[in-house]
């Protein structure tokens, strides 16, 4: 089942706070769209989104910033989360997958 919700309030810039949820049996997959953001707001928005999730849930971070593409996996590993991989969806857009561990 697929639905949408806002993870932390309805902001003016709806584009990147709107999160798509794919409900699973044990854990859900959330997609946060941070396209158009630059560092450090890429990380801030992604981190805030991850905080709202339950342990075991997966956050898919949809981004288009090259610096964030390199930095986000390292940052989330430092935060104690599990980095599951990065998927290129075009030559300028990627999805970083993080599983919430703490």
């Amino acid at each position: 089942m697929e639905k949408y919700r806002y993870l932390y309030g309805v902001s003016k810039e709806v584009g990147f706070t709107k999160v798509r949820i794919m409900e699973g049996k044990d854990n859900n997959i959330y997609v946060v769209d941070i396209r158009g953001l630059v560092c450090p707001y890429t990380l801030i928005k992604a981190k805030l989104a991850l905080e709202e999730l339950k342990i075991g849930d997966i956050l898919e971070i949809h981004l288009d910033n090259i610096a964030a593409l390199r930095n986000l996996p390292t940052a989330f590993i430092y935060y104690g989360q599990e980095y599951l991989g990065t998927e290129a969806i075009s030559d300028s857009e990627w999805i970083i997958k993080i599983r919430k561990k703490e």
Binding site: Y8, G9, S11, K12, E13, P40, Y41, L43, I44, K45, K47, L48, E51, Y78, Y79, G80
Partner: peptide, 19 residues
């Protein structure tokens, strides 16, 4: 608010504080 996210961003980034 967006303004608060910006204002407190350096604390939000800390593992021990966060949002």
């Amino acid at each position: 608010s967006e303004e608060q996210i910006l204002r407190y961003s350096r604390h939000i980034l800390l593992r021990e504080i966060g949002g």
